[in-house]
């Protein structure tokens, strides 16, 4: 393609001076959207995104009197009291610990189980493989509301209600299919010749998988783990249904505070800000894979 373009270019302009053709090439590299104010669009959009988040942060640094009494665009007398309440009161900070425990458990379970399955889907054909792959997808798409009640009864029968493992297993419903689909997307990008060469070199399957294959798809594993973490972290309905006190996630504790009468807006805002932080911290590392992860590894 490039060849054709440059040939046409030379013929059409009858060998222009070097500088001129350089300028032409540079202008051609641009995409054709010449309007000088293109940057306004993303800028305005990001402003729109940041405004509600800013408002939450703004509130988290205010006292309740200030939140309810005066309307101000930034805290007049900034205070850290709200954060102090959360970080010193066990009923608050244990919510974070509970959330992190079941989220990590879920991520480990989902990715570990998904690794061999994704390999099988990307490398082999077997009886019913397509049906199975499709069936996994339906679970990713299934509304958690459908599963809330049966989950509650199932885990009650096993005495697992209000344990971290119950939530971790329940979240496998959508995270295992997600991990399988993402990993399959990454694995299909690795040429099959690598497997065959390794076998010829005398590698056993487990050794090949750990020593050669895993490093090749390391970014895929990272992305899958990140998205399992994220989707387990943001989910509320199942986590709330399956827990009462001991394993209650932070998100459920927040809704409880919302429904109570005398609202502590400042603490609520601070709790909200603290739940955004894990995502904001790791987002930088996966910025190039976000689209791929959300699209189940299919971009």
């Amino acid at each position: 393609m490039n060849d054709t373009v440059s040939r046409v270019n030379l013929a059409g302009t009858a060998a222009p001076s070097l500088a001129a053709s350089d300028k032409l090439a540079r202008s051609m590299r641009r995409r054709g959207d010449e309007s000088r104010f293109w940057w306004l669009v993303p800028l305005l959009y990001i402003l729109f995104l940041m405004l509600p988040i800013y408002w939450l942060m703004n509130m988290s640094f205010k006292t309740n009197q200030e939140i309810l009494g005066t309307f101000s665009l930034w805290p007049q007398s900034p205070t850290l009291r709200n954060y102090q309440v959360i970080l010193t009161d066990p009923s608050w900070y244990k919510g974070y610990i509970n959330s992190i425990i079941y989220v990590v458990m879920n991520t480990v379970i989902a990715v570990t189980a998904a690794l061999p399955a994704a390999y099988a889907f990307s490398r082999y054909r077997f009886l019913g493989d397509k049906h199975l792959f499709f069936w996994l997808l339906t679970n990713r798409m299934a509304p958690p509301a459908v599963f809330a009640l049966p989950f509650f009864q199932l885990y009650s029968a096993f005495g697992l209600i209000d344990t971290h493992i119950a939530v971790a297993l329940a979240h496998c419903l959508f995270n295992v299919p997600l991990a399988v689909w993402i990993l399959e997307g990454f694995m299909s990008g690795v040429p099959k010749e690598i497997d065959e060469t390794a076998y010829i070199d005398g590698y056993s399957f487990p050794r090949f998988f750990v020593k050669i294959f895993m490093p090749l798809i390391a970014s895929g594993v990272g992305v899958a783990a990140f998205f399992c973490f994220m989707f387990s972290w943001v989910e509320l309905l199942l986590a709330r249904t399956l827990t009462t006190t001991e394993a209650k996630p932070i998100s459920a504790i927040m809704t409880r505070t919302v429904s109570a009468s005398g609202l502590d807006w400042g603490v609520l805002a601070a709790a909200g800000v603290l739940t955004i932080i894990p995502g904001a911290l790791v987002i930088w590392f996966v910025r190039n894979y976000i689209a791929k992860g959300f699209a189940l590894g299919r971009v």
Binding site: I53, M230, W233, E235, S251, G272, T275, I276, G279, I283
Partner: peptide, 9 residues
């Protein structure tokens, strides 16, 4: 960033 915020938040 908004994609990674818990849904109830």
């Amino acid at each position: 960033l908004p994609l990674l915020i818990p849904w109830n938040v």
